[in-house]
Amino acid sequence: MSAETSLPISHRQRLWLYGLGGLVLLFLIAPSVIIVIMSFSGSTLLQFPPEQWSLRWYESYFGSVEWRDATIVSVKVAVMTMIVATPLGTAAAYAINIGTLRMTGAINALLTASLIIPVILIGIGTFFLYARIGLNNTLTGLVIAHTVQALPLVVLTVLSGLRSYDMNQEKVARSLGANRFSAFRQVTMPQIRFSIVSGALFAFITSFDEVVVSLFISGGETTTLTRRMFNALRDQIDPTIAAISTCLIVLSIVLLSAAQIFGRGR
């Protein structure tokens, strides 16, 4: 980074820029920090910093059957989404990376469709489809819908891993007598496994945090955590949600760090 430091502007002359950028960073991070601190408050009033501390909102989260059931549903769906989306996305990324197929543009557009099409339209469309085939309010329905949302992220993550991998190695393995699958499993996969793991983690968190589609297609026994939170927020501001939010923030941090660590291993 010597190229940057050799610009004839000192850091001191840039103080205003750092100040401004710092304020924007504060704007980005402050809400999460405030929520984490508020979740340990001992009172129902919104005070910051709280005057007394307690774990009562965590007790109210873990003690409530409704919240617990919703959390279990969300975890189940996220794990299954991860299990389904990762192999599908990896297979698709592998095929795209070979690059001999025609209509690559159409294939890419279809695979990344769920990133471009407004989520509300996907939600309504999925609900409409599921109403006909009886998949509303089922775990299967949620897993399918979330897999579609997570797929592009897995494809893009694995693809970026494959781009920095030399496919000739797999050809060598095949010319030495390995069949295609075992060549992939023994030669290619160990070298892109970090991208695959990152993709899997992104799939998990995409499913776990998904709100809009779940609002339409989950309910009753299969109410997801995000759906229950959304409904709770519509009514009133329950500090229990601060405790749940803190758990979600911690989960994000853990998964992101894991993805980061695995990503670096590449």
Binding site: L233, I249, L256
Partner: peptide, 10 residues
């Protein structure tokens, strides 16, 4: 990567 709901709640 933090849930939109969490940030809206905040």
């Amino acid at each position: 990567w933090t849930s939109v709901l969490v940030r809206t709640y905040a």
